[in-house]
């Protein structure tokens, strides 16, 4: 129950966590050259281990490897027993609890609350792609760093 309480705290403080993550993401994207020098593959295991610890504590993270927390009010959709990543199912109980696990608040009821406090809360409107099961257990941070750094580098590369 301790973990569950932390998870609810994280949703209540979604705005704070959002700002923190935005700063964190800027840094890890900027450090892309360093990651490259060390080698993303070599970093994968240790970084994933850290990520599992940190996000496990804060969000009950399931390490899907394609983090959607910024679009889901800091309420991890992989904790939904149906793994729904685009909104609640129709089975939510009148008290806002889960159909499958009645002792738990619906992940998406929390997601909606969390997203309303966030600056970029409207990201909850984005349609999420199906889960890529090959990414399971991998670091989402490293993936974001590599992809965003790559996306930034590309237009410049073309211009020069």
């Amino acid at each position: 129950m301790g973990m569950y309480a932390v998870r609810l705290w994280s949703v209540r403080h979604s705005r704070l966590l959002e700002s923190f993550y935005q700063g964190f993401e800027r840094i890890i994207v900027r450090l892309d050259p360093l990651w490259k020098r060390i080698g993303y593959e070599r970093l994968e295991q240790p970084v994933a281990a850290v990520e599992r610890q940190v996000k496990g504590l804060l969000f009950d993270c399931q390490m899907c490897g394609q983090c959607a927390l910024s679009s889901t009010g800091m309420s991890c959709p992989m904790n939904c027993p149906k793994n729904l990543r685009n909104g609640p199912c129709g089975g939510v109980r009148a008290n806002g609890h889960c159909e499958v696990k009645p002792e738990m608040k619906c992940v998406w009821v929390k997601a909606w609350e969390g997203s309303q406090q966030m600056l970029e809360g409207k990201a909850i409107l984005d349609v999420q792609k199906p889960v890529d099961n090959t990414l399971k257990g991998h670091s989402s941070w490293l993936r974001v760093a590599r992809e965003k750094a790559g996306a930034r580098a590309q237009p410049e590369g073309r211009a020069s």
Binding site: P130, V131, D132, N133, T134, L135
Partner: peptide
């Protein structure tokens, strides 16, 4: 195995 197909990201 799903890995042998063209949608390895599918859930087995």
């Amino acid at each position: 195995d799903v890995a042998t197909g063209d949608q390895p990201e599918a859930k087995p």
